[in-house]
Computed example of a mutant assay.
Amino acid sequence: MTLPAAVILAGGFGTRLPEVSATRPKPMADVGGRPFLELVVAHLRSCGVREVVFSTGYKSEVIEAHFGDGARFGVAARCVREPEPLGTAGALRLALPFLGDRALVLNGDTYVDVDVAAMLAAHLAAGAAATLAAVPREDASRFGRLVVEGDRLTGFEEKRPERAPGLINAGVYLLERRVIEAIPAGRAVSFERETLPGLLAAGAPVGVFRHAGAFEDIGIPESLAAFREWAASPARGS
């Protein structure tokens, strides 16, 4: 099974990580002597992904200089710069000329070791327009929960003050090309707040792929420190 190209959304400013963002984009934060983004690419490569498109914005040149054409990381890589902040979906729309029938989309500041081939198999078997990876949380109150029937997404629950378990969005998607083509070009668009709810409202099939592995973000100093510790742990084989 040929895996689609991966689009890594890496254009954010990283305002909550000033010690990193002063000199580099947030996804290039140092983790054990390697940029965080390198670990994300290494996982994709281990899954069989061979093409990576970096959607860049803030300090694009740092990512471009490090990864180049991707050859030394075992992938074919290219960077697509946002001319201005375009949101998650708007940035994805810019990458359309470099994509095939579908794309794997993920956030550059989150490490999710999802089995890409298994997720693609589920996506194709369901005939889904989009499939998202979901992770279970004993306390999903600060994230908001996914409303799921079987393996299909039917809606979203807003954040609640009370502690309760649930499935949350891991921010990893498989999208058919037509979904990306339908994103308005030339303006800021949020995938989470506009595109995904729009698919549900239109009755498009949106699959849910349950992921029980790692889901680690580096969005704030505490979570970056926790990820560094996790990445270096002997149990992970680092």
Rank of each mutant, 00 (worst) to 15 (best):
P25M: 15
G57R: 07
A225K: 14
A226N: 01
F191G: 00
L92V: 04
V147Y: 00
S233N: 11
A121E: 03
D113M: 07
V148I: 02
C79P: 07
L153V: 03
E61A: 15
A77H: 03
G48H: 08
M28Q: 12
R160L: 06
G237P: 12
G207H: 09
T2K: 11
G68Q: 12
E162P: 00
A133T: 12
E138G: 02
R137I: 03
G186S: 10
G12S: 12
S46F: 10
R178V: 04
G90P: 01
C47F: 05
G14R: 05
G14D: 00
A130R: 14
A76I: 13
Y111T: 06
Y173V: 13
V135Y: 00
L167D: 02
G70A: 01
G237N: 01
A182G: 01
S238K: 12
A182N: 11
R137M: 14
A235I: 03
V20P: 00
S190H: 15
G207C: 12
D30N: 09
G11D: 14
V135K: 02
D151R: 05
E38I: 04
E158T: 01
A226C: 05
E181T: 10
G87T: 08
R24I: 07
L96R: 13
G155C: 11
G198P: 05
P234L: 04
E194T: 04
A10H: 11
E181L: 05
P161G: 12
A76T: 08
G213E: 14
D139Y: 05
A77V: 07
T56A: 02
G237H: 03
A170V: 02
S46I: 10
E64L: 03
S21F: 06
A126E: 10
S141M: 02
F13T: 15
E38P: 11
V179K: 03
D109G: 08
A134K: 01
D115F: 09
S223I: 06
R210E: 10
L106G: 00
F215C: 14
V206M: 09
L92R: 02
A95V: 12
R163N: 05
A170G: 13
Y111I: 02
G207L: 07
A122Q: 09
R24M: 14
P4I: 10
A6G: 02
V112G: 13
F227S: 11
R163M: 03
V206D: 08
P165G: 00
P83C: 01
S238Y: 08
E19M: 07
A10W: 15
R102D: 10
V52M: 09
G87C: 02
V41S: 00
F13A: 06
L146T: 09
A125F: 06
V20C: 13
W230I: 03
E158M: 09
T195S: 11
H123M: 05
E194S: 06
E38G: 14
L153I: 03
L17K: 04
A10C: 09
A118G: 15
A29F: 06
E149H: 00
A212D: 10
I168K: 05
L199W: 08
G171E: 14
E194Q: 14
A71S: 12
S21C: 13
P85Y: 15
F98A: 10
T2E: 03
A212H: 13
V80K: 02
G70T: 06
E82S: 13
H211R: 12
L99E: 00
E181Y: 13
R177Q: 02
V75Q: 05
